[in-house]
Amino acid sequence: MSNHLVKGGIKLPSQDQKKAKTININLTEEEYEKVRALAQIRDLNPTAYTRLAALGNRIKPTVIEMPKEQITIDEHEEIEKLRAENQELKEQKKYDNERIEVLDKFIKYVNDKGYIDFKGYKEDFGLMQAMANYSDNQM
Rank of each mutant, 00 (worst) to 15 (best):
residue 105 K to F: 08
residue 8 G to T: 06
residue 32 Y to D: 01
residue 81 K to G: 08
residue 33 E to A: 10
residue 91 E to L: 14
residue 103 L to A: 10
residue 46 P to N: 06
residue 11 K to P: 00
residue 36 R to C: 04
residue 136 D to V: 09
residue 63 V to T: 12
residue 71 I to N: 02
residue 86 N to H: 12
residue 88 E to S: 09
residue 12 L to F: 15
residue 119 K to H: 13
residue 56 G to Y: 05
residue 40 Q to A: 15
residue 93 K to P: 00
residue 88 E to D: 11
residue 132 A to H: 10
residue 46 P to W: 02
residue 119 K to A: 15
residue 85 E to C: 02
residue 120 G to N: 04
residue 55 L to H: 07
residue 68 K to E: 14
residue 70 Q to Y: 10
residue 82 L to A: 05
residue 132 A to T: 12
residue 57 N to Q: 15
residue 91 E to Q: 15
residue 133 N to L: 09
residue 112 D to K: 10
residue 45 N to V: 07
residue 77 E to W: 07
residue 89 L to R: 12
residue 11 K to M: 05
residue 106 F to V: 04
residue 28 T to S: 15
residue 24 N to C: 02
residue 93 K to W: 03
residue 37 A to W: 04
residue 19 K to T: 13
residue 124 D to N: 08
residue 17 Q to R: 11
residue 34 K to S: 13
residue 8 G to W: 03
residue 83 R to S: 04
residue 9 G to Y: 05
residue 76 H to S: 14
residue 67 P to F: 08
residue 92 Q to D: 07
residue 123 E to Y: 04
residue 118 F to D: 03
residue 8 G to N: 15
residue 112 D to W: 00
residue 108 K to I: 11
residue 7 K to L: 06
residue 46 P to Q: 01
residue 71 I to Q: 11
residue 81 K to M: 09
residue 66 M to V: 08
residue 110 V to C: 09
residue 86 N to G: 01
residue 50 T to N: 01
residue 32 Y to W: 06
residue 87 Q to D: 13
residue 120 G to W: 02
residue 72 T to P: 06
residue 112 D to P: 00
residue 92 Q to V: 14
residue 37 A to C: 14
residue 86 N to M: 13
residue 63 V to R: 12
residue 111 N to I: 05
residue 19 K to C: 09
residue 139 M to L: 14
residue 104 D to C: 07
residue 132 A to W: 05
residue 98 E to R: 11
residue 54 A to S: 15
residue 77 E to Y: 11
residue 114 G to H: 05
residue 90 K to A: 11
residue 112 D to A: 07
residue 55 L to T: 07
residue 123 E to G: 01
residue 54 A to W: 00
residue 8 G to F: 09
residue 121 Y to R: 00
residue 21 K to H: 14
residue 25 I to E: 01
residue 120 G to A: 04
residue 14 S to Q: 08
residue 11 K to Y: 09
residue 113 K to T: 12
residue 35 V to M: 00
residue 27 L to F: 07
residue 66 M to I: 10
residue 61 P to A: 08
residue 130 A to W: 04
residue 131 M to N: 03
residue 89 L to K: 15
residue 123 E to L: 08
residue 30 E to T: 06
residue 94 K to V: 07
residue 78 E to G: 02
residue 133 N to P: 03
residue 7 K to P: 03
residue 35 V to K: 03
residue 71 I to R: 12
residue 115 Y to Q: 11
residue 111 N to D: 15
residue 22 T to A: 14
residue 73 I to A: 14
residue 2 S to R: 08
residue 126 G to D: 15
residue 70 Q to F: 12
residue 40 Q to D: 14
residue 1 M to G: 05
residue 60 K to M: 01
residue 138 Q to H: 05
residue 85 E to M: 13
residue 19 K to H: 06
residue 48 A to M: 05
residue 64 I to V: 14
residue 79 I to T: 06
residue 62 T to W: 06
residue 96 D to H: 07
residue 136 D to R: 13
residue 41 I to W: 02
residue 63 V to Y: 09
residue 98 E to W: 01
residue 118 F to W: 08
residue 4 H to I: 13
residue 57 N to V: 11
residue 65 E to T: 13
residue 108 K to W: 02
residue 133 N to T: 11
residue 98 E to V: 07
residue 95 Y to P: 00
residue 59 I to E: 02
residue 139 M to T: 12
residue 92 Q to K: 15
residue 139 M to N: 09
residue 87 Q to M: 11
residue 99 R to T: 03
residue 13 P to G: 11
